[in-house]
Design a protein around this nucleic acid. Structure first.
Length: 225
DNA sequence: GCGACAG
DNA sequence: ATCTTGTCGC
């Protein structure tokens, strides 16, 4: 699986911002996908010891949530962590990992925001646009916006607002646990995104897909480094 | 000036 | 990402 849209990753900060502004015009915020048979969860970890990024992708069969495929790749760091330019650091390693994937997912759940971003182009939207695939953005913490705390029961949610604009949802995936910041990545509506996250997170704080990827990354890091 | 700032 | 417990203050 490879990107349908390729661009230079070796950019200065101002160029990266300009590219985000251009590519954000391509983001679709409505449901636009075929029947979903497979869902991918992606996560990236950084190893200080080796100064490498480790990207993990887990493919789940959508109705059983069984893992059907997974892959881990290492990649060198090419871009610093800058708030708002997160995708320029992590996405190249994810693209590399997707080259190994044999099972085509119809939906990708990302550990990073979608349009809940200053230029409406977080990592999930960036991934969605360059692969032209539906994506959901998930954040453990907020990047941007105002919200009221959702009530404590699982499934409760409130809207994440930037001024008058709805940019995401603050979703309680488990009772008594901090809510998850869910936003549209690409080719999906906010409502559908939240429904998928609830379907994928019956037991975990994070979507099961990204949690699985997280565990894979940690397993590899503890064994190799 | 001060705080906030995905990982 | 990680550190990390209490009780201050527009």
């Amino acid at each position: 699986m490879k990107p349908v849209l390729k661009h230079n990753w070796d950019l200065a900060e101002t160029e990266a911002i300009k590219l985000q502004q251009e590519l954000s015009k391509k983001v679709t915020k409505e449901d636009q996908f075929p029947e979903i048979h497979y869902v991918a969860g992606v996560d990236v970890a950084y190893s200080e010891q080796s100064d490498l990024l480790v990207a993990a992708i887990v493919i789940l069969e959508a109705h059983s949530l069984n893992i059907v495929e997974s892959v881990i790749v290492e990649d060198s760091v090419q871009f610093p962590y800058i708030s708002g330019l997160f995708s320029f650091r992590e996405l190249p390693s994810i693209v590399k990992a997707f080259r190994q994937i044999k099972t085509f997912p119809q939906l990708v759940v990302c550990d990073g925001q979608g349009i809940a971003h200053p230029r409406r182009f977080g990592l999930a939207s960036h991934l969605g646009v360059i692969f032209d695939i539906p994506t959901i953005g998930c954040g453990k913490t907020k990047l941007l916006g105002d919200f009221q705390e959702p009530s404590k029961e699982r499934g409760a949610c409130s809207l994440l607002m930037d001024r008058e604009e709805i940019i995401g949802s603050v979703l309680r995936t488990q009772e008594n646990i901090k809510p998850l910041f869910v936003s549209v990545g690409h080719r999906i509506s906010l409502e559908t995104a939240c429904n998928w996250i609830l379907k994928l997170s019956p037991r975990y704080r994070l979507p099961e897909t990204t949690r699985q990827a997280d565990q894979l990354v940690k397993k590899v890091l503890s064994k190799i480094y």
